[in-house]
Design a protein around this nucleic acid. Structure first.
Lengths: 218, 218, 218, 218
DNA sequence: GATGAATGAGGATTCATTCAT
DNA sequence: TATGAATGAATCCTCATTCAT
């Protein structure tokens, strides 16, 4: 977008050609990422094949490799874009919480927004859904994981001021784990049952955090 | 070759052969399952190859398929045996809880035993660590999952009498999810930090269940 | 061959089955190596594809990989067998030269035997024909190269006693280089012209070594 | 972009454009050949990819194909230019030898110049380093080979007057082969060892040719 | 039962080359 | 001219599974 505003009327033809080429590339990348998202969702990241992604995108395998060096890079770029959109939509921190906001409300709205985001981007869960090998987190999902943790830590720091950083980190890990497992349940259900699971997820988190937050008001 | 030289002429062949064959079969199965456990642990279920399992067991691929029709069957049998051992060790229900046992104690001991079991059988986590495809639970892990749920439901029913079954089921799903994510964190750490995560896991569960349990005493 | 002489008549059936299996494997390996030799000859080592080798051998690609981990291993095994046959046919050293043998005769017979061997095994040249990248010798050809050098050094040591090892090594390298280039020319021609090139190759080597050998008689 | 701003309005477009285009084309070709040389040197001809050459030259693959129909053509043109420079630097024949020049001197200076040329143009060796397929000389290297042979034949004709052309041709082939293998050894070493190999190369050639040259003086 | 050879489709990735812009 | 996107066959290699022995 920054390049659009320079010399708007002087060199119309000389520049449109490379611009169009670039635009085509951008479109292809978007198209490939979309296809990758679909494939990741339906088969999982591990089982997804680059050929399947290319096929889904309606291009040849070679085209995919013109834009991404390997499968991992696709996952990483997809994760980056998701995190970017999340930041754009919901701001830098998970939620700007001031001391007056009740915990239940803060957590509730964070969960609602997280879940809404996931429903809009089902891949998110597939990418977040981490390690094939217990205890090890694959690189592809690492950045996503780290970013989410950071967001949660930021929220927790504002909710639980004065807590030692190590404890905040641990609590953030726990919350993320709880959230991931809750999300799995939410996505596995529909309608009223889904709503019930959303409520349960909020309950778990709020009840877990309440005693910790109580320290600050005390 | 060691088994060839034992009792060469004493037993009537017609009787000893099938019995011995059966015994040998059992040994082979145990050997294969052990190998499968090792491979699942080090590479994850999806990436585990049947050839690798056979190699680890010191037998040929053909032998593996004499006892298991496919990879999935191995995981299922492994899960069955784990659940069997769990039942044998800890009894039919997760814990025989009477009304007098404080919730924290009941949950604490259940978590401790669960974790102890996992440390004794690291595959457990690999098998439990479910779906490659978000929202869908793979068949291999299905039985395991169902059994665990049942155990948790049994415990919850005794903890929360009078709760509608649908709510108990939902709560059990949530608890299992929380437990799985907590276990992941526990296994990813060592020493004091691991202990801290164990405590947090207990906290999450106790605080989540407390208000529900309160209803019964009231 | 060593296993054939044990218990020749006691257990005829119990042992023939695994033996046959092994024999099948050996035959496959031989067949694959033969196919590889043909492909290496017609397309060169670098351009040879494992699929082409498998096709030439009339087996599936998977079968090839049951016996060889990769293309390089095929070349190495092929080289090993060639060196083995060379040793079996011509003895450990290139030629057992005593001081009385005239240089021309020693070199002539060594060249003749080398060339005869190459005509019997055209791959030999393809494998010997070294580095794609000047100055670097690929691992596949390394062992072959080293063995040939050793043989030449042994011959030279007997021809040129008292020469410093470093000089012998250098001379051996030169002789091998000359031989390789001469062989290329020999193989590229037929009939009388080929014979003429054989003679020239001998001339080059004899004239090169004569002054060095003169030192010993003096 | 630097070429866009020179002489923007002075020359009539109809005339300057084709001339400038030609000049630009020449520069492009030189640039591509330089890049190809670098890639051939570092990976060898066979393994060199046209994409890599284009990348090294800083142009797109399409541009490369605007000037060369395929990879082979690049090698051929590169070889042509090398031979051209060789002719420009060292004259039409390898060396203008008169009867008075001692053989050792003539050969020594020819070898020295050849080697110097190779050190200035490392691709030369990569291109000369002929056939992937033993016995067959690839088209790419054919012209190079033929030109070198011609030069050597010319030299030999002056050194060995009265020798039948077929013998001269054969001798030239042998000399070229010896030179190529010697060059490989020279390039593979450094410092004093390299010098020693240069000397050995000269020895081989001189001793090989001496008896042939002796005939003329006799 | 046990073996290990055999399969062949499918995995990721590369590359010479073409083509619309 | 120049670009870079597009191709698709070919590369090496793996793996669940079968089958003759």
């Amino acid at each position: 977008m920054p390049e659009k505003n320079q010399t708007p009327a002087q060199e119309p033809a000389a520049e449109s050609t490379p611009r169009r080429r670039q635009a085509r590339g951008e479109r292809r990348i978007a198209q490939l990422l979309e296809a990758a998202a679909a494939v990741f969702c339906s088969t999982g990241y591990t089982a997804a094949s680059t050929n399947a992604i290319a096929r889904e995108a309606g291009v040849s395998p070679g085209t995919l490799y013109q834009f991404f060096p390997n499968k991992e890079a696709i996952a990483i770029e997809l994760g980056d874009r998701l995190m970017h959109e999340m930041r754009e939509t919901y701001g830098e921190a998970l939620a700007p919480v001031d001391a007056a906001t009740p915990l239940a409300e803060a957590v509730g709205s964070a969960v609602d927004r997280f879940i809404a985001f996931n429903c809009r981007h089902p891949v998110f869960f597939a990418l977040m859904h981490g390690p094939d090998i217990p205890g090890r987190i694959a690189e592809e999902h690492d950045a996503l994981h780290a970013t989410l943790l950071l967001r949660i830590e930021t929220l927790l720091t504002s909710l639980l001021p004065g807590t030692p950083p190590a404890d905040v980190a641990r609590t953030a890990h726990v919350c993320l784990g709880v959230y991931k497992s809750g999300l799995e349940l939410v996505l596995a259900h529909q309608g009223a049952e889904r709503e019930a699971y959303v409520q349960e997820l909020k309950n778990v988190l709020v009840r877990y955090l309440e005693p910790l937050a109580a320290a600050r008001t005390a």
